[in-house]
Design a protein around this nucleic acid. Structure first.
Length: 834
RNA sequence: GCCCGGGUGGCGGAAUGGCAGACGCUGAGGACUUAAAAUCCUCCGGGGAUUUUUCCUCAUGUGGGUUCGACUCCCACCCCGGGCACCA
């Protein structure tokens, strides 16, 4: 008689698994594969149960699939570059690498302590040159394909730090995180971009392939983010200034162009100052313009901001009607979207209506509804923007057309006349990857006075980070102030040159890391295409909803570029995505800063990893948030103790027993009850694991089974050894994916000298699971009035007779006439009486 | 404002058209014990009738609807959480 000692058991089996290398797998086209992956962690702070939940879910899936005979790839690595390492290094006067590697060691120890079935040989760390050289290699390939380019772009700049701030370093709606009294400025500097927009169409269209495999809301968020908009660009000539280019507007409703009563430019539109030059209204306009340009920094209250604008004193010519309309500047027009200029059609656009009413601009109806009262401009309370159910009026030769017809015809007309064309635009922007930071992948180009920008040749990769950077958090980027890094020679002419000092966004690292897992030590290529072809696509990707847009979008982009490069032949990296809920305490997500973390290691020490794993699976379904409760976890601990005691009591006597096939007919009532329960449980648990991922209800079922076995103690009286063994073995195997250490121990106690890892998932016996007696609920007029006990499969007539004979039920029938009967065999009888 | 997700006992949750509250936590009572821990057993949504056994009734955010039957499907509304947000 021994107590359940998780510390001892868990250490023992972790050692055995490592020795037997049971979680190591190799590409083998003769076997069916399964690639299950949890998003790689950023190693910072301490690992808490929020982290563990994610890996536990993945580990259950990995272990179930192994038991199902799949060749499973389940790797782990570290998203090791990033700003926090640099900040911590400055604060503690250490090196980012030291800080990062200490954290990695810590994280790794905790993950091992939880017994996750990772193939640790495939571990990667993105801050190692062996990894980031391939970021550089990919960058060069993108440069060759015209997918990487430089342009001026805005950054957040703190005038006190004299440095660039990341978005998350801008706090309280526009202040520096270090100098909370200092407003962050917006500065333009040259930065590197990747042309994600070149793939906008495919990124959008291929979302269709993910339907059913990815959560609907993630697909939707990506669709909105990419934001395809079909419309037309139209040029409006400027009437009263010579030598100014035509203003191009974007509209989705070219059919309403005869109703345009103004052209409105974004405050930062490049034409604004040219238009104001010499304008009689210039003096009045400039202070307004300055105010608008300044306030455009704060994006938060943009939506609620009142529409403001001013007239430039200039006019544009409507290319369709020849009409002269005023050119305004409006704060609600965004330079970043479309062309930064719109035509205002107040009768048919809500925003335009609001603006034009405010400033007394005319309103002209050009679409009349097919039904109901005709619109009168002065009386309109809302813009009429229905696409259908209307026809064009006041639109010259296009009168009478439906908006859909007009959109096609008018775009074609504009193209023919050379002042416009149909065009699709996207909200998605190119991916700015430049960071003026140290702890990231150096961008592999040099600047030569003779040859200009020159890519670093492949043979010179990796461009290594200098070991002793000048880290202050102030002034120029750290690489720029490290002369031994900056000063180099031009690969083309051999003369002196300067290195690019920007490093890459860490989203680059995480955009393709899962390919590297398939071939982590390759020093000739990022990975071997044949290996990737075997393992990809990822069968199940698991992570937080927080990555629904950026990480997953960039990964999808990378995948498509790699496909175009011929490295892979699939177009989406992950067939299925699961977004698990957060672990909360006190109603908020666990985080170090909130001080509400439940440390994973503390948990393992107090209850053992298996209890921690079981509880995170039991407390809530995996997709929902989980509120951590110190009291509830006791229940999981008690349950595992209960199971252990049960096996401790019976296993020794069963060590030498062979199960064999059980003949359902030759069993006693007690045996039959227990066998039925265990096979029913197995049937439902199998479903919960395979199709529904309802781990919480699977555990509830296993608890019920355990209760049932306890209720039949003493088990060794009236239950034959082979049946006892079958019961306890199935119980053990059902627990194996969730509490693997305990399950291995119990398996060994039952007399198995081979580890459980060679055992396939058991299949349930339908014959043994079958109920032979059922209680059929009987309703009268849809209300439950009684139950009748009958043999399974009893016919309707018999059940009705029994129901009528039941006094409680008969009372409700009370001589009334039965007008209808609904009978679901073994499930329900409903008698409808009049 | 628009788009998702959710609302079930004291708590976490179960049931996806067929016995609402499985399983667990908490709480109450009991057994064992010199005692405690551990363990085991019983009870635990509200109201009412009956009194020792059961029965009735209300109840899954609110109000309607569909159905023999609705936590589950449909419509409207309220509340909570999340995402997007002047996207032309």
């Amino acid at each position: 008689m021994a107590d359940y000692n998780p510390q001892e058991i868990e250490a023992k089996w972790q050692k055995r698994w490592a020795e037997a290398r049971v979680f190591e797998s190799e590409a083998d086209p003769s076997k069916p594969k399964y690639y299950v992956l949890e998003m790689l962690p950023y190693p910072s702070g301490t690992m808490h149960m929020g982290h563990m939940r994610n890996y536990t879910i993945g580990d259950v899936v990995a272990r179930v699939k192994r038991m199902r005979g799949f060749n499973v790839l389940h790797p782990m690595g570290w998203d090791a570059f990033g700003l926090p390492a640099e900040n911590a290094a400055i604060k503690n006067n250490t090196h980012p690498r030291t800080w990062t590697n200490n954290n990695i060691a810590e994280f790794q120890r905790v993950l091992r302590r939880f017994g996750f079935s990772f193939d640790w040989r495939r571990e990667i760390s993105t801050c190692e040159p062996e990894y980031y050289r391939w970021n550089q290699w990919f960058f060069l390939r993108m440069l060759e394909r015209g997918l990487a380019y430089r342009k001026k772009s805005r950054v957040n700049w703190c005038p006190k730090c004299c440095t660039v701030l990341a978005n998350e370093q801008v706090v309280n709606g526009g202040y520096c995180w270090r100098h909370e009294d200092t407003l962050v400025e917006s500065r333009e500097i040259e930065q590197w971009f990747l042309k994600t927009t070149a793939y906008a169409e495919r990124l959008l269209d291929d979302l269709n392939q993910l339907e059913g495999g990815w959560p609907e809301r993630v697909i939707l968020m990506q669709r909105n983010w990419i934001g395809r908009s079909q419309g037309a660009k139209v040029k409006f000539e400027v009437a009263d200034v010579a030598g100014v280019e035509a203003i191009e507007v974007f509209t989705t409703r070219i059919d309403t162009i005869y109703g345009a009563t103004a052209v409105i430019l974004a405050p930062s539109h490049p034409f604004v100052s040219k238009l104001l030059e010499g304008s009689p209204l210039r003096a009045a306009a400039e202070p307004k313009l300055a105010k608008m340009r300044q306030s455009s920094v704060k994006t938060e209250d943009l939506a609620t901001m009142e529409k403001e604008g001013f007239f430039t004193g200039r006019h544009a010519v409507n290319p369709f009607s020849g009409e002269k309309i005023p050119i305004w500047v409006g704060n609600f027009v965004l330079m970043e979207y479309g062309t930064g200029a719109i035509m205002a059609v107040p009768a048919h656009d809500e925003r335009d209506l609001e603006f034009c009413r405010k400033y007394g601009l005319p309103i002209r109806v050009v679409i009349q509804p097919l039904e109901g009262e005709l619109l009168v401009a002065e009386k309109m309370t809302a813009a009429f923007d229905a696409h259908e159910k209307g026809k064009l009026v006041n639109s010259g030769p296009f009168n009478g057309l439906s908006p859909a017809e007009a959109i096609a015809k008018m775009a074609a007309f504009a193209e023919q006349k050379g002042f416009g064309r149909a065009e699709t635009i996207f909200r998605l922007k190119d991916w700015g990857i430049s960071r003026q930071r140290y702890w990231g992948t150096p961008i592999p180009v040099v600047y030569c006075p003779n040859d200009g920008m020159v890519p670093v040749p492949d043979k010179d990769l990796p461009v290594l980070l200098p070991p002793n950077p000048n880290l202050t958090g102030m002034g120029d980027s750290p690489l720029a102030t490290t002369p031994e890094f900056v000063n180099t020679t031009c690969p083309k002419c051999g003369g002196p040159a300067r290195r690019e000092t920007d490093t890459m966004d860490t989203f680059v690292d995480s955009s393709w890391y899962f390919y590297r897992y398939t071939d982590p030590h390759n020093d000739k290529a990022p990975f071997d295409s044949a290996k990737a072809a075997y393992w990809f696509p990822i069968d199940q990707y698991i992570g937080g909803i927080t990555h629904a847009i950026l990480h997953l979008l960039y990964s999808r982009f990378w995948c498509k570029v790699m496909r175009d490069m011929g490295l892979i032949s699939h177009s989406e990296p992950a067939a299925r995505l699961f977004t698990q809920g957060m672990v909360q305490k006190g109603g908020v997500a666990m985080s170090k800063s909130r001080g509400n973390v439940v440390g994973a290691e503390d948990m393992a020490q107090k209850y053992g990893a298996d209890t921690g794993r079981l509880y995170t699976l039991f407390a809530a379904p995996p997709e929902k948030d989980l509120e951590w409760s110190e009291e509830s976890i006791e229940g999981s601990w008690r349950f595992l103790n209960r199971v252990y005691r049960l096996l401790d009591r019976h296993a020794a006597a069963l060590r030498g027993v062979n199960c064999g096939r059980i003949d359902a007919a030759a069993t006693t009532a007690k045996e039959k009850t227990l066998l039925r329960k265990v096979h029913q449980t197995l049937r439902r648990v199998t479903q919960d694991f395979e199709t529904r991922w309802h781990f919480n209800s699977a555990i509830a079922l296993i608890m019920e089974l355990t209760n049932e076995i306890y209720a039949h103690e003493p088990l060794d009286e009236g239950v034959r050894p082979e049946i006892r063994k079958e019961l306890l073995e199935l119980l053990t195997l059902m627990l194996a994916p969730m509490t693997p250490h305990l399950a291995e121990e119990l398996w060994e106690m039952l007399g198995h000298s081979d580890g459980q890892w060679i055992v396939p998932w058991p299949s349930f016996d339908a014959e043994l699971a079958r109920e032979d007696e059922v209680e059929v609920p009987v309703q009268v007029n849809g209300r439950l009035r009684g139950k009748v006990k009958v043999a399974a499969g009893t016919a309707e007539e018999v059940v009705v007779k029994l129901a009528q004979a039941d006094s409680a039920i008969a009372h409700h029938l009370n001589g009334k006439r039965i007008v209808k009967r609904i009978f679901v065999p073994d499930k329900l009888l409903n008698l409808v009486v009049a």
